[in-house]
Design a protein around this nucleic acid. Structure first.
Lengths: 179, 179
DNA sequence: GTCTATAGGTGGATAGAC
DNA sequence: GTCTATCCACCTATAGAC
C-alpha cells in the first residue's frame, strides 16, 4: 500500500516541522500528531496570524473614531512589523502562492479579504464624514491601499529602511485626506 | 579537510539546480561547472532578468515621448507578466530577502534601484512638461509607484485576477495626471 | 500525547571518468 | 564541458514503543 499522502516539495516558504517543533520544545513527530500534514500546519499558522491581525484592527476600531487616524494606525501596524525587521506573513506566502497547498492559499486570501473589508468600511465612513476623499467604490481604493502597503513593505525591507515604507504610506494617506 | 563552501538552506525560493539543468537539457553536475554555488547561479538569474527588464524600459524610452504614456506602458509590463500567471522575479525573491545569499540580495536591490531611477526620470520629465503632478521629490514618488505596483501584482496573482492589478495601477496613474 | 527511529525524497555540492 | 555516482544535510511523513 502506498502512503496516504504525498509529500510536498521540500520546505514550503521557510517554515518547517523542525523549526516549529524546536520552538515549542517538542519533537517533529509530536507536532505531526496535532497537524498530520504540512497543508494543515500552514493553514493554522496563517489563521493564527490572521486572528492576531483582526484583533489589532478591532483595537483600532474601539479606540479611534477618526477614519484618518484609523488609517494611520493601520499603516503603523505594518511599520511596527518592519521595525522588527520582519515582513507580513501573508505577503511572504503570496510570493509563493502558486506552489502553496490549497488550504494555505485559501487562508492567505482570507487574510487579504479581511484587510480589504476593514479598509473598505473605514474608507466609506471617512467619505461619509467628509474627511476622506477618493474616486470610485471604497473597495477599489481599499485594494489599492492593501497592495501598495504590502509592496512598500516588501521593498523597504530589502533596504532595511523603515522610512522608505513610511514615506510611501504617508503619501498614500495624504492623497486621501480631503483638503 | 572540510568543504570549501557551506551548503545553503535547501531550496532557496523555488528554483534549483535540478529545475534549471533539466530545462537546459544538461545534468546538475554540468550546471555546477558553470555556477559552482547557488549564490552565483541565483545572481546570474536575477541579472538576466534585470537586463531583460532594462531592455523593455529602453524600448519604451525610444518609442514614446509622453511621460504619461511611458508610465502606462511601464504598468503594462507588470500586467503582461500577470497575464501569463507569473510574478516579478525580484518581487518574489524580496519576500525571502533575509535568507538570500549576499550576491542575490545585491542583485535584487540593483533591480529595484534601476526601476526607481527610470521612474524618477520619467516623473521629473513629466513634471517639467506639466503633464504629471505630484508632491515632493520624484524619487519618493518613484518609490511609491514601484512598491505599489509590486504589491498590487503580488495580491492580484493570489486571486488570479489581472483586473485587480490594472484597477490599482490605473488609480495610481490617474492621481498623477495633471488636471 | 510524546518519544525514538526510520523511510523515502529533494536539496546543494563534489569526485573522478571520459 | 559533460557525464555517472555519491555524500551529507534537511525535508515531510509514518511506525510503533511508552
Amino acid at each position: 500500500m502506498g502512503p496516504a499522502r504525498i509529500s510536498l516539495p521540500t520546505s514550503i516558504n521557510g517554515f518547517s516541522y523542525a523549526d516549529i517543533s524546536k520552538e515549542l520544545g517538542i519533537t517533529k513527530a509530536s507536532l505531526h500528531y496535532h497537524f498530520p500534514a504540512k497543508a494543515e500546519l500552514g493553514r493554522s499558522l496563517i489563521e493564527r496570524y490572521c486572528n492576531a491581525f483582526r484583533g489589532a484592527l478591532l483595537e483600532i476600531e474601539s479606540t479611534d473614531r477618526d477614519p484618518r487616524k484609523k488609517l494611520r494606525r493601520y499603516a503603523g501596524l505594518y511599520a511596527e512589523v518592519l521595525r522588527r525587521d520582519r515582513m507580513c506573513l501573508c505577503g511572504m506566502l503570496a510570493a509563493d502562492y502558486s506552489v502553496l497547498p490549497r488550504p494555505m492559499q485559501d487562508a492567505v486570501r482570507a487574510f487579504f479579504d479581511a484587510n480589504e473589508t476593514w479598509l473598505s468600511s473605514v474608507l466609506e465612513e471617512g467619505r461619509k464624514r467628509k474627511v476622506l476623499r477618493f474616486r470610485g467604490p471604497p473597495r477599489e481604493e481599499a485594494r489599492l491601499l492593501l497592495g501598495a502597503l504590502e509592496g512598500a513593505m516588501l521593498v523597504a525591507r530589502s533596504y532595511g529602511d523603515v522610512s522608505r515604507f513610511s514615506s510611501s504610506a504617508d503619501r498614500l494617506l495624504q492623497d486621501l485626506s480631503a483638503s
